[in-house]
Structures are given as C-alpha cells and as structure tokens.
C-alpha cells in the first residue's frame, strides 16, 4: 500500500520534473513544477512532515509559482525560438553528466541505506507542537533573520520592478 503510493508519486514527480526541464513553453514548465511540488509534498507526509507538506503547497505552489506565472504572462514570453550556439552539444553534455551524477550518488546512497526501512509513523512523530517549540526557542535568531531577509526582498523587488519614470507621472503631461 505505502510502496504503491510512493511509487505513484515518485513517478509523477520525476515525469513532471522532466517536463519542467524539457518543455519549451514556460507556462507548461510552471504547471508541471506544480505537479512535482505537490507530489513531493505527499512524500513529505509519508516521511512524517505534514506541516512541511502543507507549507510547501501553501507557499510554493500557492504563491511563488503563481508569481512566476504572473511574470510570464506580464512579459508575454513566448516559447524558445531558434537556438544560438552549441545548443545540442551543451544538452548532451548536461544529460551525460546528470546520468553520471545520478549513478554515483544514487549507488552510494543505495549502498549506505539499503535495507533500512522507516518505522511506521506514530502520532508523536508527526506532532507539530514540538516543532514549533524548537523553532521559537533554539532557532529563534535564524527565524528573525529570515523575517528581515523577507522584508529586504520585498523592498528590493519593489525597487527593481518599478518603472523608472513612475516617480513623477505628472511630468509627461
């Protein structure tokens, strides 16, 4: 049962990840990234992290990827047209190195962790409260810094995306 669920969502994640990378239309890339992220969220639940799963869907797919779509539609980016220099060579190289990477790291992790089955989840292992306690005690400072970082990002994004002449709209008239 659990293996079936894992295989289903793992397959979904890999297929949609391939579509993200291969599809020429960025809107389709974003849409299949949504599928990838939602299926990894399911895997998070299976790993005993339901809080992260909900956050992943809420933050990533609910906000960040919508922002991507917004920008794609705003800039009206079309599909990639004619390739310029060394397109297929670069692609082949990337493919080969990706395959080698998967082979090496995959075999190491297979060797190190084969036969290690995860124990079944218990209500204690998925509880959110201890997580919150740790976040707001041990990791309080990083948490605050993240808040500051987000504020800086908001200000930075606003400044960057603003039209240069938006300061004085009356000037032109």
């Amino acid at each position: 049962m659990e293996i079936g669920v894992f295989l289903l969502f793992a397959l979904l994640a890999v297929t949609s990840a391939l579509v993200v990378v291969v599809h020429r239309n960025p809107v389709y890339s974003v849409m299949s990234l949504v599928v990838t992220l939602v299926s990894t969220a399911v895997l998070f639940v299976m790993l005993g992290a339901p809080f992260l799963a909900a956050l992943q869907v809420l933050v990533y797919t609910g906000a960040i990827l919508v922002l991507f779509l917004f920008v794609i539609m705003l800039l009206n980016i079309e599909r990639e047209t004619q390739r310029t220099n060394g397109g297929w060579f670069k692609k082949l190289a990337a493919l080969i190195s990706a395959a080698i990477f998967v082979a090496i790291v995959g075999s190491i992790s297979l060797q190190a962790y084969t036969g290690r089955f995860l124990e079944a989840l218990t209500p204690e292992s998925v509880a959110i409260e201890p997580l919150a306690r740790e976040l707001f005690s041990t990791y309080l400072l990083p948490f605050e810094i993240i808040g500051l970082l987000l504020l800086a990002a908001v200000v930075g994004a606003t400044v960057l995306a603003r039209k240069q002449d938006a300061v004085s709209p009356e000037k032109e008239r």
Binding site: V34, P50, F51, A53, A54, L55, V57, L58, T61, G62, A63, V126, A127, I128
Partner: peptide, 14 residues
C-alpha cells in the same frame, strides 16, 4: 489531520 486548517488554505490556494 494534524495540519487541519493549514492544509485547507493550501488546497484553496490552488
């Protein structure tokens, strides 16, 4: 489920 309303908001945001 433990995540309750958080999950609800996540699904609604889709």
């Amino acid at each position: 489920v433990e995540t309750g309303v958080l999950l609800l908001l996540a699904l609604a945001s889709l």
